[in-house]
């Protein structure tokens, strides 16, 4: 048995971690699975140009116009009574619509995700329904119910209750158009998580409500926040449905988006600044929403549902 003299690497027993054998570096030279540099460049330029032209430019433009007569005029216009009243009304409507849909979203997702029952798929379709209904139609349906010639119109008039062209109508329309946001973020995530955690908590003696509060809610809180965020943005910015129902009485039933339209119809420099300064507030809201959304997706990607469709 001849013995050998061989170089022994000091740590031959432990190979290092697996190398990035299929490194996903796109600018790898002459790779078999990417395009020539010129194709990539053109595609990137087209994509960036498209986003820049259609998305970035309008956003920047809103702020440029809002401040086109200086900061003084900007704040002047925002502190006009009509503007103030529109902001207050929008905040009020949102403060009612979002919690209402939040409660619905939680209830619906609990029933749908934690139980098996017949017609579940149909129920989910119905929840998504408001997304495929034009906002104008959303407004119209309430006019048909509560308007002067509507089904409940005479009764409402007799009892002196005002829904159409008043705050309740605006709230109803807003709830309608933002109806699915929370539910559709929660349902897929809660379905994915199953019922194991809840069953464990119940077997340990927790009550149903405590189980929800301490087990279910922490599991879905980021998706919940995400849904509320989108719901909030849409609630504050809804135009079509609200415009049908509000009657557009400045200082009384005009929300922020309606006030933008009202101001844009007056052809003066100050009215233009008024319109764009109001728009800039909503644009700021959109930016904050996007930043929070991006942050949530980046930080809690695994705890948010993957369905980023139809908002």
């Amino acid at each position: 048995m001849p013995a050998e003299k061989v170089f022994v690497p000091p740590d031959y027993q432990r190979p290092t971690e697996s190398p990035p054998e299929v490194a996903a570096i796109p600018f790898r030279q002459r790779s078999a699975v990417t395009e020539p540099v010129w194709v990539r460049t053109i595609l990137i330029v087209v994509a960036v140009g498209f986003v820049g032209l259609f998305l970035l430019l309008p956003l920047v433009f809103v702020f440029v116009q809002a401040f086109s007569m200086g900061f003084g005029e900007y704040f002047e216009q925002l502190s006009e009574p009509y503007a103030q009243s529109a902001i207050r009304l929008t905040l009020l409507v949102t403060a009612i619509a979002v919690p209402a849909n939040l409660v619905f979203g939680i209830a619906a997702s609990w029933a749908i995700a934690k139980f098996e029952f017949k017609g579940k798929a149909f129920l989910i379709t119905l929840i998504d329904l408001p997304f495929s209904v034009s906002p104008v139609i959303a407004g119209l349906v309430y006019v048909l119910l509560f308007g002067a010639q509507g089904y409940f119109g005479p009764w409402l008039e007799a009892n002196d209750i005002q829904i159409i062209f008043a705050v309740p109508g605006i709230v109803l329309a807003t709830i309608f158009v933002t109806f699915p946001f929370v539910a559709r973020e929660l349902i897929p995530l809660m379905q994915e998580q199953g019922t194991g955690d809840e069953e464990a908590a119940l077997s340990l003696g927790a009550s149903g409500f405590k189980t929800f509060l301490f087990v279910t809610l922490p599991n879905v809180k980021w998706a919940l926040l995400y849904g509320v965020l989108l719901c909030n943005a849409r609630a504050m910015g809804e135009f079509g449905a609200v415009s049908v129902l509000s009657g557009r009485i400045q200082g009384f039933t005009n929300t922020m988006p309606l006030q933008i339209e009202a101001a844009s119809k007056e052809f003066s420099r100050t009215a233009e600044v008024a319109a764009f300064s109001m728009a800039s507030l909503l644009a700021l809201l959109a930016l904050v929403t996007l930043i929070l959304k991006t942050f949530l997706e980046w930080r809690y990607a695994d705890r948010l549902s993957s369905s980023a469709q139809a908002h």
Partner: peptide, 24 residues
């Protein structure tokens, strides 16, 4: 089979030095 350790080079005779050369 016997395989010589790579390092340290030079005459090593003590048990302590041998131990140091042991793989982890």
């Amino acid at each position: 089979r016997v395989y010589a350790d790579a390092a340290p080079t030079g005459p090593v005779t003590t048990a302590a030095a041998m131990k140091a050369a042991e793989p982890s």
